[in-house]
Design a protein around this nucleic acid. Structure first.
Lengths: 327, 327
DNA sequence: CGCCAATCCGTGAACGTTCACGGGAGCGTT
DNA sequence: AACGCTCCCGTGAACGTTCACGGATTGGCG
């Protein structure tokens, strides 16, 4: 548990002053070549590493942003995170990733600790704004996929309406009439995506869409499709809450002896890269996931830097139909 | 670009001293209930947030570890990262994630910047130890999946030998004799996994194993299988460098009209959760990915905290055959 | 009334670095 | 010889917080 080696130790060993050591290490000018080398040698000798705290304290740059994600193992969030990391790297910012494990308790715990570690936070939150505000105590925050009422927040909006309409158009054009949906079983109320689906169906004069609920996993999707087809064997197409569920459905369909897309068309939501590894490749209402992550980071960074934030209309990510093989 | 609001501002507004503000915010004792409330109100009013730098400077706790990963979109590394995040959260440590985008240049850039932001680093590096050491300048480092020679490093060793032997045993028992491998095409030299494969084959008296090279992606795996089967149509089984490649191979096999595992058995490496969403579910030589990440973080954290590091034998992660459906 | 303890609060110092400024040495110019 | 310029280096201050200590006020008790 030895004391930390400081810049003064290096200075003493090299026979110079603090400032000269600082100059040597930061490649500032105003220093002789030979003394610079001497300082560098001394630093290496002593195993000196500058304290990031002391350094951060005096120069105000160095921004790090907290990225809060419900579940890194969910490929959707992985892609968002990847986009965020890329954007941050381009700007020289740092990202601390927090995985809340889909748990409210963990989310609270994360919020508790995050304020003292980052300059701003972005991500997926499920707490209401009042509680968020209370925990964050003034920390700039960017909410993804969710609108804000308090002006202190910023948000990245996801618009899937157009994409879902395209998907249903695509199915109807191909002759489908009996189209079901696999919503997710997580929250109490039906999802926004389900609303888009219902609207799109109504627009084609197709009513009473059949809906099943799936846990957010491939197995959940498989089970839900089983159940749904058990009740409504005449369905010729299904739209799912997301790609994970769709991939489960794909597998279940094959087990049931249904060829995709001939006997059953499947359209997912998210447009994951992963959709290409299954057979047939998944047709999906695609979101630009990397862009979502990049926008979130960009906005968060601007908020802390005091730059002019991105305008509302640029914070919108729209989905489009990505036709592959499953429909 | 207003000045930062400091603890002194809060103190002035609340009509107390710095120290009292500090006490109020950190739930220390020795403070009257009413003044504490007054301070808290003032802090909220002003939007005060303590500087993490100043705080970190004076109290020496708060460790953050850098996690360096070649490609977060690769599900294998995602699982490792998830394990790392979980372990870090349990310990109250923070993790800054760096994605080097599979590029040496980015890896160098990351190393350049990482030393000033974290207390230790863990992850996958492709630079040689000498250069690593030069860039890291004394920063504790844990190498994953790779042995170290310099005692200053620590490493998480991956042993796949037993698992690969199990895999080949499994195939041979099922009657397979003509078994090929899809190695990865990245580095110059053949992989360790290929060595294990060759050894296992030799043990069964099966020589001259046929090997193809695949880019690390599903498409790469598909292409490589095409090519391999083109040259050696009599193969009845393939072992692949990893699951991603295997999933591509799976898809390619189906396109070629080969049923898996009847006409062609496929065994991957990694044991990704993802292997269950494809059909048939992927048989694989499985690694405990979460444990890899957790061990890396644990060891890195111990190094910075000065705790006794984990002994060599605990830093070993062994692979075992995970039989699902594709073989 | 005097004393002690408990409770609450404030003041200097320290953490380790960079910034702003100043100063000395050496050399050339007038 | 005086001056100015360039090059190199050092000293005080500042960043914002917590720690260690000491002081003031109050209440209780003999």
């Amino acid at each position: 548990m030895s004391k930390r080696v400081t810049i003064n130790d290096v200075a003493r060993v090299a026979g110079v002053s603090r400032q000269t050591v600082s100059r040597a290490l930061n490649d500032k000018g105003e220093i002789d070549g030979s003394t610079k080398q001497r300082v560098l040698d001394a630093a290496r000798e002593l195993g000196y590493r500058p304290s990031r705290f002391a350094r951060g304290l005096v120069r105000q740059d160095s921004t790090t942003i907290g990225l809060v994600i419900p579940d890194l193992l969910n490929p959707f969030f992985t892609e968002v995170a990847a986009g965020a990391l890329e954007a941050a790297r381009a700007r020289g910012w740092h990202v601390i990733v927090y995985d809340t494990a889909d748990s409210i308790a963990e989310e609270r715990g994360t919020l508790e600790v995050v304020t003292s570690q980052v300059d701003a936070v972005a991500g997926y939150f499920s707490l209401d704004e009042a509680e968020l505000d209370r925990h964050l105590s003034g920390l700039p925050a960017v909410l993804i996929g969710r609108d804000h009422r308090m002006p202190r927040f910023s948000s990245i909006r996801i618009d899937g309406e157009k994409g879902v309409h395209e998907a249903i158009d695509h199915l109807v054009t191909a002759g489908h009439r009996r189209i079901g949906m696999l919503d997710h079983a997580g929250r109490a109320e039906p999802s926004l995506r389900r609303d888009w689906f219902t609207d799109a169906m109504n627009e084609h004069g197709l009513h009473a869409p059949v809906v099943g609920n799936a846990v957010q996993s491939a197995d959940g999707g498989a089970e839900a499709l089983h159940e749904l087809l058990g009740q409504h064997p005449d369905l010729t197409a299904v739209f799912t809450y997301n790609d994970i569920i769709a991939m489960g459905a794909l597998k279940a369909a094959r087990k049931l002896g249904k060829a995709v897309p001939r006997d059953l068309a499947v359209i997912g939501f998210d447009g994951l890269q992963l959709g290409t590894v299954v057979d047939p490749a998944l047709t999906s209402v695609a979101l630009d996931t990397r862009r979502i992550g990049a926008l979130a980071i960009e906005q968060a960074g601007r908020l802390v830097a005091g730059e002019t934030p991105l305008p509302e209309e640029e914070l919108l990510v729209s989905a489009v139909l990505l036709v592959r093989e499953s429909a």
